[in-house]
């Protein structure tokens, strides 16, 4: 690359590195909820994107309320709204599990069809409630703009925020799954439902809470994405394929696999789109994923899953 000064190239390298990491945290945050639902429970939740949209609309709703009634609290509403996003998505997930999913555990492929129907309904509900147009939440100032460590380098604040959130959420999920009583029960149920039931685990309750938690995390992801992407009735459909790819590529039941796969895909895509055009970079990334999946069908990292 002739004609560029060394400091130019250096700052681009830094920012490019950051945008790779930023994409990594986006993918990770998207995939975590599904990694729990699909990876641990084997439920193909096609409405996962719509649960993200719930989170996004929650932020929008809170921002409008705060702007109108408590303008002084604008810097702080986002924190409350994220908790609300989790709670609302969790509750709806809980309800969906009770009404729909629990009848279908023995037919995992059917969950795909039922949740597809659910996603259509949810999209239409968003449209009826918030209108067909896209909306935009007013973000607090601390989430806007960039951090300039040197005059040439801009690190996006919203990217930093998404990154921080994905680290927090990942840590919490890992702690819960591997260090808590609940996590133990979840893993036991995953590995052998009948035995888990036999030793006195209420597998139905575990299922319900696991599903709802996955949905809640999707809500958090959607809430974070309002800072970097669009909020509209069909926004969720932009994410669903990428989300599934990350989870499958990582090896479905392995949380570590999900992290590794999000990292690999993000870096590949970020670097490729820098050197090729945006569209070609995406295609090459997807093709590479498919080829690797054909060679390693069970994903990058696998652990035992019930079949």
């Amino acid at each position: 690359m002739g004609g560029y000064s060394l400091s130019d190239l250096w700052s681009i390298l830094v920012m490019q590195g950051f945008s790779g990491l930023s994409l990594f945290s986006v993918l990770l945050l998207m995939a975590l909820g599904l990694a729990i639902i699909f990876g641990q429970m084997g439920v193909i939740n096609m409405a996962h994107g719509e649960f993200m949209t719930i989170g996004a609309y929650t932020i929008y709703f809170f921002s409008k309320i705060t702007e109108k009634y408590f303008p002084g609290l604008m810097p702080f509403y986002f924190v409350v709204a994220i908790i609300a996003a989790f709670s609302i998505a969790f509750l709806i997930g809980y309800l969906v599990e009770y009404v729909l999913i629990r009848h279908l555990y023995k037919r995992p492929l059917d969950t795909l069809l039922a949740t597809w129907g659910l996603s259509l309904i949810m999209q239409q509900i968003f449209r009826s409630m918030f209108g067909a147009r896209e909306v935009s939440a007013t973000l607090p100032n601390w989430l806007m703009g960039s951090w300039k460590p040197t005059p040439d380098i801009d690190i996006p604040l919203n990217g930093l925020f998404v990154m921080a959130m994905s680290i927090v959420v990942t840590l919490v999920v890992v702690l819960f799954l591997y260090r808590s009583n609940w996590g133990l029960k979840v893993r036991a149920t995953t590995q052998n439902r009948i035995m888990a039931g036999a030793v006195g685990i209420n597998t139905r309750k575990i299922d319900r809470i696991t599903f709802a938690t996955g949905c809640g995390i999707a809500g958090i992801a959607g809430a974070c994405f309002t800072t970097i992407a669009s909020t509209g009735p069909t926004s969720g459909s932009l994410y669903i394929v990428d989300t599934f790819l990350v989870v499958v590529f990582g090896g479905s039941a392995s949380l570590f696999g999900t992290v590794a796969s999000a990292f690999t895909i993000a870096q590949a895509q970020s670097i490729l789109t820098f050197f090729m055009t945006n569209a070609m970079g995406k295609v090459v990334t997807l093709l590479a994923i498919i080829i690797i999946l054909m060679m390693r069908p069970e994903g990058l990292f696998t652990s035992k899953v019930r079949k």
Binding site: M1, Y4, D8, L9, I12, M15, Q16, F18, S19, G20, S22, L23, V26, E134, S136, G159, I228, A229, S230, T231, G232, T234, S235, L238, Y239, Q269, S270, I271, T273, F274, N278, A279, G281, K282
Partner: peptide, 30 residues
């Protein structure tokens, strides 16, 4: 497409006088 990080870096590297854009749909917001 919802990720423009690399594209934006390319633009910063080239330092154009004018960015001339026709991005549509959900991508536009991102």
């Amino acid at each position: 497409s919802t990720d423009f990080g690399s594209t934006i870096n390319k633009i910063r590297l080239k330092k154009p006088d004018v960015i001339y854009a026709a991005v549509v749909g959900g991508s536009n917001v991102s």
